[in-house]
Amino acid sequence: MTFGKYNNYTTIIHRLDSRIKLIALISFFVILFLPYGTGYMNLVFYGIALILLFILSIISKASFISLFRSLKGIWVMVLFLLIISLLFANSNSGDIAFSIYELDIYYSTIINVSFVLLRLIAILTASNIFSSTTKPMDMTYALEWFFYPLKLIKIPIHKFAMAISLALRFVPTITMECQRVIKAQASRGVDYNQGRLKEKFKALTSMIIPLFISSFMKSGELADAMEARGYDPDSKRTRYKVYHFGLKDVIAILILVIILAFFITACCFKFDLFSYLGVDLPKLS
C-alpha cells in the first residue's frame, strides 16, 4: 500500500464526517506551527501533538509501514538541515553541545533541527491519517462545503469539485495505463534506465504521448457518457450519500476543540515548564 492511499476499513475515524476530518487536519497543521516559548517547550508540545497523531493512526489503522517507508528519504533531509544550520544559522549561540574537530555544534542547532524533523513527521502522519480514512469523493465534498461562500460571488464551486473528484478518480486508471504503455514500448526496445540523454528523452516521449492521447480520449468518452445520462453542469446537485451529523461527530468536534484550546492556551502563556521545575538545561541563546 502506498502512502496516503485510502484503505477500506470501517473504524470510527473512517465513519467521521469528512468536513470534521478536514478541519482537524488543518487544526493540527496550525498546532504544529504555533510557537510555545523556548525551544525546549516547542519540542515538548510538538511531541505531544505527535503522540496524539500516533494514537489517531492506531485507531484509524492507517498503515505505519507505508508512512515509515516514505520517511526513509528523510535522513538525507536531516543531514542537509544540519549542514545548512551549521554553516549559516545565526542562531549559533548559547552552549556548545560538542565539537567535531574545529566545528562547534550548539544545542540550539540540534534543537532546531529536531523540531523541524518532528514537525515534518507529524505533518506526514496527519496527512496519512486523513487520506487513508477519507474517500476521495468525501474529500471533494468537504472542500466543496468549505468553499461554499465563494458561490455567493458566482464562482462555480461544484464544477471545480466535480473536476477534482474526476481527476482523483482517474489517478489509478492512468497509473495502469502508464504501466501498459511502458511495457508495450519496452517490447519495442525502449530502455527507460539506460542510454544517452537524447535517447532518454525519446523514451520519455514514447511514454507520455500515448498517455496523453488515451487520457484525452478517455475524458472525451467520459464527457459523452455523462451527457448521455443527463448530466447538466448548471443544474442543482443532490447527493447520493446524505451526511447526518451524529453523536460521534459532535464528540469529535468537542475533543478537537479541547485539543486546540489546550495548545492555543499554551501558546498564549508561553509557560516555561523547565524553569518552573528548576531543571537546568543548556542555554540556547
Binding site: R180, V181, A184, P210, I213
Partner: peptide, 9 residues
C-alpha cells in the same frame, strides 16, 4: 498487446 494502438506516438 491487446489494443496495441495505444502505443503509437
Amino acid at each position: 498487446f491487446q489494443f496495441p494502438e495505444y502505443q503509437l506516438f
